[in-house]
């Protein structure tokens, strides 16, 4: 290399850059290769094989039998599959929609200049996110215990409400699981909104105040439109997270699971690792993949419109 340098600097810079170019190409490919290698083995191949396996009947040990679309027919005719789709969507909406709304309000409060000890509130609200999902699911399983002495049931009894068998009731299960999601992720989303709000210049609020805008008008016409990229991000990530819900129901209702709380991923897990129906489990994985695409697209479409319409309104 030093030899090249002597030659190249005065007369032929092209030669040096060329050989450096070659070196860059080689090291470039070398440096990025670990990802592609890992992705080939643990990403691309398994995904391709999932699509393949979805057309076969296989118990994991014996021969694979080609069954065409039969796996899809089986799961689409299984009421439990549709139940799992329904549960996933209901829990997803119940767990995330209130969370995002409260998150925005909370961030707005934390962003207000009048509030003291902000960092203390920030830490308190963020703390649940540091807790692992399993720990959250266990703590809430005990909070929402079926027994009379469970804390939530005790509180309800003050209002004269009979104890609820949370793990076996249609709405009880969904409320408990949504509460876990809400509690763990509220702080995370609040902090993201807060970061977005801190980027909004204060002049805008001042100017609107001079124009006589109320607090609600400020939120709706300044904060929300300018926060749109952040809202899109949180809606996108929470949607995907909600559709992949697994640990919470799997822990709350125990290993066997129950129809009230079964989600698509729990259904997939049970098909594969409890029943050894790897074909139908793969078909479920593919159905989930398309479900995620469809719901994310719908969600992004509507969230995008929400931002636009309020922008139009502010003009």
């Amino acid at each position: 290399m030093s030899l090249e340098l002597e030659k190249s600097v005065p007369q032929t810079p092209k030669k040096r850059t060329f050989s450096q170019k070659k070196k860059n190409i080689v090291s470039g490919y070398l440096f990025i290769s670990p990802f592609y290698l890992l992705f080939l083995i643990f990403g691309l191949f398994p995904i391709g094989f999932s699509f393949y396996l979805a057309f076969f009947s296989w118990n994991g040990l014996g021969a694979m039998d080609f069954v065409g679309l039969n796996n899809f027919v089986i799961i689409f005719n299984d009421p439990l599959f549709w139940k799992s789709v329904y549960n996933t969507i209901v829990i997803g909406v119940m767990g995330t929609a209130p969370q995002l709304i409260v998150g925005i309000l909370l961030a707005f409060a934390l962003n207000s200049v009048l509030i003291k000890s902000k960092s203390l509130f920030r830490v308190a609200i963020f703390l649940p996110y540091v807790t692992s999902i399993v720990a959250v699911a266990i703590v809430f399983s005990v909070l929402f215990s079926n027994q009379e002495f469970g804390l939530v049931n005790s509180i309800l009894s003050i209002f004269g409400i009979e104890p609820i068998t949370w793990t076996r009731s249609e709405w009880g299960t969904k409320v408990a699981i949504s509460a876990m999601v809400f509690w763990r992720w509220l702080g995370y989303n609040t902090i993201i909104y807060l970061a977005g709000m801190q980027a909004i210049p204060n002049d805008l609020y001042e100017a609107s105040k001079i124009d006589g805008a109320t607090l609600r008008q400020q939120i709706w016409h300044i904060t929300i439109p300018l926060l749109k990229p952040f809202i899109l991000f949180t809606v996108f990530t929470s949607t995907i997270g909600a559709l992949q819900l697994f640990a919470e129901p799997h822990i709350f209702q125990g290993r066997g699971g129950r129809p009230e709380g079964i989600t698509v991923v729990v259904y997939l897990y049970r098909e594969a690792f409890d029943s050894n129906f790897f074909g139908t489990a793969s078909a479920t994985a593919i159905a989930l993949f398309f479900l995620i695409i469809i719901i994310s697209a719908l969600n992004m479409y509507f969230t995008n419109r929400l931002g636009n319409s309020s922008k139009v309104g502010s003009k």
């Binding site: 440096f31 990403g43 396996l53 790897f278 793969s282 989930l288």
Partner: peptide, 28 residues
């Protein structure tokens, strides 16, 4: 570093972030 296909290879990596991890779970 400049190398042929750099942008496409990078976009590909971004694309893999969209894949739900359960899709390849069973073969994995």
């Amino acid at each position: 570093l400049e190398f042929p296909g750099r942008n496409i290879l990078f976009l590909f990596i971004l694309g893999t972030m969209m894949i739900p991890p359960q899709l390849g779970l069973i073969p994995q």
